[in-house]
Design a protein around this nucleic acid. Structure first.
Lengths: 339, 339
DNA sequence: AAAGGTTACTAAATCGTTTTAGTAAAACGT
DNA sequence: ACGTTTTACTAAAACGATTTAGTAACCTTT
């Protein structure tokens, strides 16, 4: 195995010092008064000898890795998968690679992951935070490491974030349901402290109020995060069964919940939209292409990811900018599930 | 910002040399005859001072990163997203993090990606290779870097790989269609040189033959890789329209193709399974939960990912093992799309 | 009590960069 | 013609770990 060529090898070949080579290869030849001819010679040689800088040595000196860490709940989820894709694309355009981890909404893993990424010296972090992460996150911000939260955030934490307007999105979803004459609107959400879910619930409540509907606790079902899909389906089937005929619409606050809900309806022989109207926060292939198409409050995933990378890279490359709080609008996509 | 504590700081605090600290923290105290009391003292101090080894320094000396690189076509794709999830889970269990890149089946990106990952010194690679990658891949294998190909491979390349039995899977899919009385079976596949697609096509041909059906070129539609979904839908709608009434079943060789095909059917008002029977290689949420449920030849995604990580880690940790060629069986899941 | 072995450590080299602090030689100003 | 700048470079330190090659001090053995 032909061993790797180092800066010293090039220096030797060019008959100069390592310093000169380093300067030239970092594009600082002009600035450092290296003669044009020498710069050219070194560049040619580096090319010819297939020089590739050693990432560790470089990192050890400079602390830079050109890598950003991405933490999401679950990469196989439609929302996060699509988010990750765009994050990677955008990061790539700007010369960064991305390392990803799934937190699985699990306490132990949440806390480890961040430390692991910090140990590996990411230049910056894009994080869909779990509540467990708060202490680590505070440390991160405190140490001024470039960070952007995505999908949700902590109001008390002075960090960058990009989310959607969850409150108004939910409010509009309920408005839509109500405008079609649905009076008994059930809510299926996750049992979590995460802000985005709270905001969606608040939007639902406000929506009821605005439309003169009364809130009933029995119309709300909270499913713990991270349950296997089939367990969710069972739980929901039970809930729907008990509430039989006592609700005419369901608002799901996330796309997995919606998927599980549809499966429950299907199992129970409850047809959408004849028996129940359905609206869901967050889109996916099943909602778009399934029969019937599910009306959704969609999130601008691409834009979120782009913004997140943009904000992050800005912070990495010119540290000391003010925290950006970006809240994007959601958009209703009407299909056939609301009657 | 409290600067990071290094091995030297601990050495100073413990009144010993850096060497001793390094030995202890690498768990070689016994082996290196460090006294029990000293080992304990150092460990306690490291804990108290919150020592975290510097990844660069460690890497510079040892070459290890505890990171594996994962290259897939597109992380937002159902198959690859789920694969990535399990890869990350399994890798995490064994103490590795994963860095992922999407090749986007694009020549330029394919070739860059691998070099970038190599530059960042991944300990190993799990790759769903594009044909463009062959030269880089050859170099990788040549340099004995731990590598596992996944989903597809190159017969002439002596590498580890884990795939499914694409040929027999397709053959069975066609058998299934034929057994239900379908005689005119169209094929929709990708226009690519990738082995797994070739094998699926071969399986289709063999299936026709075994069932006494004749192959007609006009029954095959090849869609170039990487087309945006809507373009695929249009192209397929055109194809189906031209072939109207001249086929009674369609076999899709991948899940995106199937999704696009269903959308095309829906646009054309062709109902499944009344007008056409459909079977698809590879499962997803839409097929499982949509109406009608789509009969699929499913791949054991979880198992593939687990095996890949297992083989890779084995190769990383005890190099010099023989190349593993793992071919897993597919399984038909009958739903409602075949009549 | 001399030779040899074991125990419990350490100094210094090393990995491949970047950066700091130079230094000869050439060019310039007066 | 002498001092000052500028040009075009270089030697050596530093980043933070691991590893090689020691070395005193103590313990055995004969």
């Amino acid at each position: 195995m032909a061993k790797k060529v180092s800066i010293k090898d090039i220096a030797a070949a060019a008959g100069v010092s390592a310093t000169t080579v380093s300067i030239v290869l970092n594009g600082r030849a002009r600035e450092m008064k290296i003669s044009e001819s020498m710069a050219l010679k070194v560049e040619k040689l580096a090319e010819k000898m297939q020089y590739r800088p050693n990432h560790f040595a470089k990192g050890l000196r400079t602390g830079k890795t050109n890598t950003i860490g991405l933490i999401v709940d679950d990469i196989s989820n439609y929302f996060f998968g699509h988010l990750a894709k765009v994050v990677e694309e955008e990061a790539d355009k700007k010369g960064y690679t991305v390392m990803f981890c799934s937190s699985e909404n699990n306490e132990g893993k949440s806390r480890n992951i961040l430390n692991m990424l910090v140990d590996k010296h990411m230049d910056g972090y894009i994080i869909a935070p779990t509540t467990f992460m708060l202490p680590e996150l505070e440390k991160l911000i405190d140490e001024k490491r470039p960070t952007v939260l995505i999908d949700r955030y902590f109001p008390d934490l002075n960090s960058n974030y990009v989310t959607v307007d969850n409150f108004n999105g939910s409010l509009e979803a309920v408005n839509h349901l109500a405008s079609k004459g649905n009076r008994k609107i059930a809510l299926v959400t996750n049992d979590t402290d995460q802000l985005q879910m709270k905001q969606r619930i608040d939007g639902y409540m406000e929506g009821l109020k605005k439309n003169g509907l009364v809130f009933e606790k029995s119309m709300v079902k909270k499913i713990p995060f991270g349950w296997p899909e089939q367990k969710q389906v069972k739980e929901l089937a039970q809930f729907f069964n008990k509430q039989k005929a006592d609700f005419d619409a369901v608002f799901f606050t996330s796309n997995n919940l919606g998927v599980a809900g549809l499966e429950a309806f299907s199992n129970l022989g409850i047809s959408v939209p004849e028996k129940v109207s359905v609206i869901c926060f967050d889109d996916n292939d099943l909602f778009r292409l399934g029969k019937p198409g599910i009306t959704v409050m969609s999130q601008p995933i691409k834009q979120m990811a782009k913004k997140a990378v943009e904000v992050l890279v800005r912070q990495i490359e010119q540290s000391g900018t003010e925290a950006s709080h970006i809240i994007l609008p959601t958009q209703i996509i009407e299909r056939e599930s609301v009657r």
